[in-house]
Design a binder for these strands. Structure first.
Lengths: 209, 209, 209, 209
DNA sequence: CATGAATGAGGTTTCATTCAT
DNA sequence: GATGAATGAAACCTCATTCAT
């Protein structure tokens, strides 16, 4: 059992290297197995196919990230219940959430970069859109509440569009931090500026439309 | 001569279809040629290789887009010369530029989507970053001017980072409009909201840091 | 394991036939594999590429030949130590060496003919020159010793040129025997005459210059 | 007419360059035509096929060489009529012939090197053997005369074999001079040594068998 | 004389995957 | 758990040659 664990682990590490270097599509299973010191057949014992191997590399970190995000979204939803229109926005809570996300991102930097920039061709190729969609419904609720609507039904098509964009942009900010900062520390330093930007945008949208 | 034009055109159209369906990497030259009713050899008479064929599809529109953007950047640079700090920002000019860009984008919607979402593996795979870089230096100048700095040299590392992000985001907005609106008219309708967002963000950054 | 050996062997034999018929360059891997009753993919399991397959055919025999030659060169070097100028040349030893070389050549006649006459385009295309170079330094030592020089440094440019030629010619003699005699027996019969020729030439050069 | 001459000449020169660089087989007609500034079709007006183009490059020089050799062979044949066994060999005449050959070789050095080292795949690939065969019958006559035989019929199989070899070697000497000397002058300087070698060999064979 | 388009067959190589052992 | 052989399809690309114009 120990041995098999080790083999699987070696495969995952070798796969990570190859996927990062060549991207999902151009990566060669042969090369991965050779570098892991394992035969192709062995790989097919542990993984169903190329995509499953990719999932073996990025699956864990992805789940962890989802957990972090979801837990914060739940927290915000609770807070939203006490919101009264016109109330001063409290950045504090959101910053804490974002900080947690950034920390998670840099905990498995390689894997997240893989997901974001090198997953084309795999089942994860739409991961960015998926994350944005995940945030979308949450942002919708924030939007109509802050806008003073009675319910989501009052939202216009334009409202929905801009909210969808903002969900996307939130994700893009994290992507940008991940791909343009060399470590967590630096990313956290930039986070405040990014937040200032996104919140400025958010309120500009709330007040102007 | 008539015939040859036609053959080349058929190849380009067949290539466009295949590239859009499968993406650059997975697209098959064989399939492209077969659907164009032409042998592979013929294709290699007109194009050097797969990448050149891709360029044959997207090259023209890309050049046109670059021209539009550059002409507007020159216009803004001139305007910047008369800028005095504290002066009210005039969205008018920028909206006109953005409107032109959106119009161009929807003029060759297929080709730009190809470039943005399906060019991985080709020499155009970094097109988004290239466009962002193109805007970056321009945005730097706007930034330090509006910030009241004497020159670009006063910009901190954080300033540069956030400006780089905003250049990226500007590009992403256009990408979002292109990929989420079904036609020019709809995109132009959403443009104002997007602009409100980005300008809100921009001023928030200018004033807070 | 038995099976795989067999497959590889069949490939090598099929390759030999094709290479002999068409030469390295014009030989088709498709044809080789088809005649071996194997898919191209299988071939690439055993060999890295076309050149490696060619090496699979000629590599063994080539190594064997090199071993034979080198062992004899060592023997001659030892003998040379006791040489005194003017001493009668003893053909005996050299004939024995040459006999061994001829025997080796006819042991794998096909493979050596392949190497010599059909390897253009492969990594073995300069094999004749390589062999000549191998003999060259050895012949230089023989030359200056027999000439009565104190060291190799006394050799003129002309000396070096003619020695280089004689090294080449030695190789050519073996090539000629291989390509113009149908079997070992016949080649050995001609060997004496060839030797008479080369030794006549050798001494003529030693005495006349 | 002037123009067409020029076009043909440009093609020949471009072909020479390409053939020298890549060898007959790997040379590309496309490349040749492109570098000549001419279309493929035009080439096929002047030449029947790839081989004919190669002939266009080397044909002239080859004819010239054949003429030189044949004229000298005729001269030697006449001289041979007055030969009496035991008579001192007069190197003079042969040296003059060889000198002429060397001069011719260096007159079109490129073309002859092409023929000798880069013609594999063309109809000239056996040129060396052809030249040797050309000399062979001539050498046979010299051999039996000097040996004191009454006619060629007295020659043994071994006699014929060694004569064939010497004809080959004669050719190889010229090849060696051509490929190892950088110009005519240097080649002529080495010629005497080479001659000493070959004549030493020749007489050694005549006297020993 | 020369163009330029097109053919069609062929080239070597790579790939993810399977399966008997 | 793992091996190693084998599949079979497809990949991109190059070639000498032809022919209507």
């Amino acid at each position: 059992m120990e041995d098999s664990r080790e083999t699987k682990q070696k495969l995952i590490e070798s796969a990570k290297v190859e996927f990062m270097e060549k991207g999902y599509m151009k990566a060669s299973l042969r090369t991965i197995c050779k570098n892991a010191g394992v035969t192709t057949g062995a790989m097919y014992f542990f993984f169903n196919d190329k995509n499953d191997l990719f999932a073996g590399v990025v699956g864990g970190p992805l789940t962890e990230l989802r957990t972090v995000i979801e837990s914060h979204m739940l927290a915000e939803i609770k807070e939203m219940d006490h919101y009264t229109p016109g109330q001063q926005y409290d950045m504090q809570e959101d910053m804490k959430a974002a900080t947690d996300v950034v920390k998670t991102l840099f905990k498995y930097k390689d894997e997240y970069e893989l997901l974001i920039t090198r997953s084309q061709g795999s089942s994860f190729e739409n991961i960015i859109d998926d994350m944005a969609d995940m945030l979308n419904s949450h942002y919708r609720d924030m939007f109509w509440t802050m806008k003073g609507y009675k319910s989501a039904k009052q939202m216009t098509k334009e409202d929905k569009f801009i909210v969808h964009w903002m969900a996307h942009d939130q994700v893009d900010i994290f992507v940008h931090l991940l791909t343009h900062c060399k470590n967590e520390k630096e990313a956290l330093k930039q986070l405040k500026g990014m937040f200032s930007y996104i919140i400025g945008g958010w309120f500009s949208v709330i007040n102007n439309t």
